[in-house]
Amino acid sequence: MKFEFVVDGARRTIALEKKGGLCIVQEGRAVFEAEIRRVSENEFLFLAPGRTAKVYLARDGERRLVSAGGRVFTLTEAGRDPDRFGGGEDGPSKADSSIKAPMPGKVIKVCVAEGERVRKNQSLVIVEAMKMENDLRAAAAGVVTKIHVRAGDIVDAAKTLLELEPET
């Protein structure tokens, strides 16, 4: 059976064939065979000659968070939304004129009004979580077309806070 995942922005295809108690794992030309036991909801044991390793997995909505070798990988099934934390603290990308909450938190201050012209890098909204203020600034000069939140609102990650029409 073939599975497609997106990891770190790259698409990976992995094939898994069960053969008796064993599993043949194939990705491109790389192949290995191991016994894979799911010993709990979140724990997989890989048993190979001379070596047993544990891999930890948890589902978070569309994503799978997997810890192997001391590192956490975020795997998304190919074709699904690659990152629900889109937006990031750097503000909107050129193509996206909406300002999104970079993390779950509380709106501390809306610094602009609808219809207001803003300069590049001007503060638009301040969102606070865990006592840290996050100052969301305009990536480019423009006009505030819509404000979706008020000071005091609790917002989820990626919630659209306000919309900006960039100046051309």
Binding site: F3, V7, I14, I36, R64, V66, G69, R71
Partner: peptide, 16 residues
């Protein structure tokens, strides 16, 4: 992570 470790992660996700 190195490719082999990532492959284990992919295999676990596929099993899941």
């Amino acid at each position: 992570g190195d490719e082999e470790t990532l492959r284990l992660a992919l295999a676990a996700a596929a099993c899941d």
